[in-house]
């Protein structure tokens, strides 16, 4: 159970949100909505433990996430900056993600993954030469590679085509079925099983 207790976030002089409370269980998705600049990304960064709230706390299994670094190792985070190196090829990027996640290097698995996200032909192309949607696919491939229990996604659908979004929604659904937890910001409607979805709107 991931719980937020009275979160308050201030950026510069403006207060983005205060007294924010929510809780998400394993197998549930928290969909964060709100206008541009309403603090969605700031909230996700707090949930990952990258930045601290001005007030309040976030707990996972009733322990503050800011006091337990091991919490972070359960998170897969795909932010606006995707963490993909433009000067590396698709396979090199995937291989680095795999090793950084502490898994042995497994080339056949990476090729399989490249095929799955529809980049098999481009697997040895520098990421810099790919389209924005293709780069996003590389970043999202990390989710399947790491197989962690908490997925934190910031606008994952940006630049993706319809076909891939359908596929991706299926992956999200599978993740929830396996009792994974999902926190996602999006402007578009995500097709997820309704009983699993909690929604909050930042204003």
């Amino acid at each position: 159970m991931l719980k937020a207790h009275g979160l308050k976030c201030v950026r510069g002089d403006t207060e983005l949100f205060s007294n924010l409370e929510f809780s998400v269980k394993s197998g549930e998705a928290l969909v964060v909505k709100g206008d541009n600049g309403s603090g969605k990304t700031s909230l996700l960064r707090i949930l990952c433990g990258f930045s601290h709230p001005v007030e309040g706390d976030v707990t996972w299994c009733d322990e503050s996430i800011f006091r337990h670094d091991s919490f972070r190792q359960q998170i897969s985070y795909v932010g606006h900056q995707s963490g993909v190196k433009m000067d590396l090829t698709v396979l090199e990027n995937l291989s680095f993600m795999q090793r950084l996640a502490g898994e042995g290097s497994d080339a056949s698995k990476l090729k399989e993954l490249a095929r799955y996200v529809g980049l098999f032909k481009q697997r040895n192309v520098l990421t810099r030469k790919l389209s924005a949607g293709q780069v996003r696919r590389v970043a999202l491939a990390k989710l399947l590679l790491e197989q962690r229990s908490i997925w934190v996604l910031d606008e994952p659908l940006t630049a993706l085509d319809k076909e891939f979004i359908v596929k991706f929604e299926l992956d999200l659904k599978n993740h929830l079925d396996k009792l994974g937890l999902l926190v996602v910001t999006t402007h578009r409607e995500l097709k997820l099983p309704e009983f699993r979805v909690k929604q909050i709107t930042l204003s």
């Binding site: 972070r72 190792q73 995707s82 963490g83 190196k85 950084l100 502490g102």
Partner: peptide, 14 residues
């Protein structure tokens, strides 16, 4: 820092 790789380092088990 600009491409978000730093954050990924912080999520690694190492």
């Amino acid at each position: 820092f600009e491409d978000g790789s730093i954050e990924q380092l912080f999520l690694s088990p190492y």
